[in-house]
Amino acid sequence: MRAGRPIRLPLSAISHPREGKPPPAGSAGVAPAPSPDSEPTPDAAGSTDRQARYDSVVLPQIAVMLRVATTITSQPADAEDLVQETLLRAWRGLDRFDGQHPRAWLLTILRHAEINRHRRRRPSLLDDPADATERHLAPVVPSAEQQVMDRAFDSVVEAALIDLPTQLRAVVILIDVDQLSYAEAAAALGVPEGTITSRLHRARKRIRSRISKAGLTPRRHP
């Protein structure tokens, strides 16, 4: 498996909120679309507190947000734009944040921002998920005879990962590559945590099956 080669996901990996129904008030990621008119106008003391809260809640999560954004977008520049939009929305929605699970809150905002970002694009510019998969995930078919065992194992895992349905692959990448918890992955994809568990189970079972078929089942060292 080639190190340093991020696997991208098309937008279809993300669950969209119901058409025409905004997220419920008070839930994570409910910041409204950016609008100068919606800016809060706190007094000076409140402003300082708010700023400190934003710094403590949001700044530590920027690296994680950028990794996840890179996973769910097709371009690094898109990922940076997406995180910037998320930072702005987080600032505007900070007063509605209940203080629990800041990463999941921010990833939910990021998901909504990504969905809106695609809605703003012209249809002709929308990525075809299948095309995106082909572009970013060229299959790797190694020759097991020509490689040492661990490299062959990695290659089969990568090929199996690439061949997974997008929804299953998304969960594996968010958990194993982006190192999210199940709750955070659920927030990033907009699905229940149980769905994360079941998709993860199915995905890894398929990968394991590919390894078995390739005769690469690793031995367990005592």
Binding site: I62, R67, I173, V177
Partner: peptide, 22 residues
Amino acid sequence: AVCRHATEPPAEALERLTAFAE
């Protein structure tokens, strides 16, 4: 094996975003 896909985000992008957030 899957973890080996992990890459650190570009430092420059992180710096820009942190400056934006601050």
